[in-house]
Design a binder for these strands. Structure first.
Lengths: 356, 356
DNA sequence: TTGAAAGCGATACCAG
DNA sequence: CTGGTATCGCTTTCAA
């Protein structure tokens, strides 16, 4: 019905040409006399004019839209990541097309192709698997892109410092005095879990009690089963390499009647808000910073980079009494160096004897 | 920048006109001879032609894009909802622009305006507050739209049957024999929580032990504090009106050393995958169905409707032994406790018939 | 500084 | 059935 005013209407009302209106709108490429500019501005909001993005996209070859593909939007980590990226994009005046790949390589490729077809200005990809094919697709489309949460080779990427994060998580556990520590992750693999796992192995004060491999698509379930097995043994603490793994451990511990931070030390890497809520200590992803960096990488051509992650201690590792945590939201516990001296589990509660 | 082939290139190679190519592409509006059609098809994939969506959008006034605004993308419920909607949209050949409003009315409006400007074909809105202003905005933009997860007045909406869900959740608790039951929600309010709360009050066999109001923006925290208080008293079971509330209860129960399903009955409404993993019994949202219905509502003009929710029992209400749950994913049946510690609830009765 | 006008690529009318 | 061609709204060159 009311088709909405076009740039011609604005030009007419301002007594000028569409070209000038365009110059005002885009602040270029030609200068406009202040007075003319004012008239145009007045006409614009007198008419309530909104530029037609489709027309602009066709002509200027820019859509003002970014595309993001994540392995699974419903997983807490990727949900938080997506929100951070959407926020960063919105702050830069861009919209975000989101695709969830359901951990399926074929679906991921379809989503990417859809983004290419949609003429997004750039693509952010959190790959579920080896992104080689995806990168090739993006490269052929000559689309600016950046990998998030997973980097590979020389492709631009923004991710946490996973190796360091794993190291610090494990070191923190060692700092508590836990000696029989198991690591849940994957020793191989050039992905976050692999890196964190290797970091954890390096960060432990002694040899690990066990290293358990968990597949990529059912982290929780694998971790749950692994933890259930481990809890039947002498394990004192578990270093999970993602909050998903940690969720599995939390469940297993609950079923085994072990209280986290008291009967079992647990720490992880990711730092989702959900884990936080469950009292999970974790080396935490700075989602907002990561989002800003990723958007900046594609929009400004800023180089990819690894963002530092920070240790946040809560009750699961034993740093804070489970019921005291919420009452003392004060200064966070210091870095690993001082952990052992600061909070040592009071009376290192006796762990269940093996086989009981 | 290799510009990529256009419809003219296809027409040239097929020895026909751009009009005919367009007819083939869109399967209309004019018929095309089978043989010509074949030549066009051949040219299309010989050239690897992809239609320019921006041009199509300008000309046809359709972008093939839907817009969604949710209160907070990082919350598990909305993350799952968003994934379901994205899935439904993708299956219908549409892309999805997502906006997270951060529970802020102003931000929500900005997001909606951005979607209007982006010329999305329709908007799906999960409002955080009274959507009157938002609906007015959408109406003035003459944009097809549908409310999801919250309905109001005559505006088209797709949502779960919240009143019934609350009623069934509470009735299930009563069916277990719990008599001192508290409800966490809000007795007032024309939103899911309000409806579920009123439904719960109606579904209880007797008067509630307590009804606790929880604010909309910090459900978990409010529920946690409320549950902590309640657990100091004689409460036997808690009916949470969302999984967020339930998370607060889960935490409070853990800190109080109460085992869910044994020392405290808990049920909620929402049915997120996360709650499921924590053993939370819940009247569950059929996300996929809801997504399909919502997308259908705006794309086909299908009427809004309420989708039925289904009770899924797990360990938190006492239906399944906490450690048995994972081992038998079959039909859920209440069991007699195998050890005395589970017998805190009165008379383990049978489940209410499904859908009662 | 300003403005007339040439497209961007696809759609669909109207003749043929 | 097929094919010129006007048009969608905006950007930007080129001339004034």
């Amino acid at each position: 019905m009311s088709k909405g005013p076009t740039i011609r209407d604005v030009a007419a009302r301002a007594g000028t040409s569409t070209a000038v209106v365009s110059y005002v709108l885009n602040d270029g490429p030609r200068p406009v006399a202040p007075e003319t500019r004012a008239r145009v501005r007045a006409a614009i909001d007198a008419l309530g004019y909104r530029p037609n993005r489709s027309a602009r996209a066709l002509r200027a070859n820019r859509t003002g839209t970014l595309g993001l593909v994540v392995p699974d939007l419903a997983k807490p980590f990727f949900a938080e990541l997506t929100r951070a990226i959407e926020d960063a994009a919105f702050a830069r005046g861009h919209r975000l097309l989101v695709g969830s790949a359901q951990f399926d390589a074929g679906h991921e490729e379809q989503q990417l192709q859809a983004l290419v077809d949609a003429h997004v200005d750039a693509v952010l990809l959190a790959p579920a698997h080896d992104p080689a094919a995806a990168l090739e697709l993006l490269r052929r489309a000559e689309l600016p892109h950046v990998l998030v949460h997973r980097t590979v080779g020389a492709a631009p990427g923004v991710a946490g410092d996973d190796l360091d994060a794993g190291r610090r998580a494990a070191a923190h556990l060692s700092g508590h005095g836990y000696r029989r520590v198991a690591v849940l992750g994957a020793a191989e693999g050039d992905d976050p879990v692999g890196r964190r796992t290797r970091g954890a192995l390096a960060g432990l004060a002694g040899p690990p009690d066990a290293v358990v491999e968990c597949a990529f698509t059912d982290l929780r379930g694998d971790a749950y089963r692994a933890a259930t097995r481990l809890l039947a043994g002498p394990v004192e603490a578990i270093c999970a390499t993602t909050d998903e793994h940690a969720l599995g451990v939390i469940r297993a511990a609950a079923e085994a009647g072990r209280v986290l931070g008291t009967d079992l030390g647990l720490i992880s890497v990711d730092g989702t808000e959900l884990g936080a809520y469950l009292g999970l200590s974790a080396v935490t992803t700075p989602f907002a910073e990561l989002g800003v960096a990723a958007v900046g990488a594609v929009l400004d051509g800023a180089p990819g980079r690894t963002v530092p992650m920070t240790l946040v201690t809560r009750s699961s590792c034993g740093c804070v009494a489970p019921d005291a945590e919420r009452k003392r939201p004060g200064p966070r516990v210091p870095e690993e160096g001082r952990d052992a001296s600061r909070v040592r589990r009071k009376e290192p509660r006796s762990l269940p004897p093996p086989g009981s």
